[in-house]
Amino acid sequence: MPKGYVAINVERCKGCGFCVEFCPTHVLAMSSAFNSKGYHPPHVVNPDKCTGCDLCGMYCPDFAIYGWKAPESKNGAKRDAAR
């Protein structure tokens, strides 16, 4: 079980690569695919290594990626928790 997850908003991405470069556990890589604006978004290559630290979310200048920690129990964060 991974300790964390990332979500990627492909269409917001402008392909700067900050998230790939600064992910401490090297979860991400730049995709060879294009989004509709012609940028290469990141994709997850090592999901098991994700700690959910959200450093990718902190770096992303386009608000296109973020991470979160997997819940430890059933009391974990629900989808609406941050609303």
Partner: peptide
């Protein structure tokens, strides 16, 4: 505007991007 793609196995626990509510 497209939504963020959330890994299927994590849908249950996925919060919103914390910056989202500020944007």
């Amino acid at each position: 505007r497209p939504e963020a793609e959330i890994p299927p196995e994590a849908c249950e626990c996925a919060p919103e991007n914390p910056v989202e509510q500020f944007l």
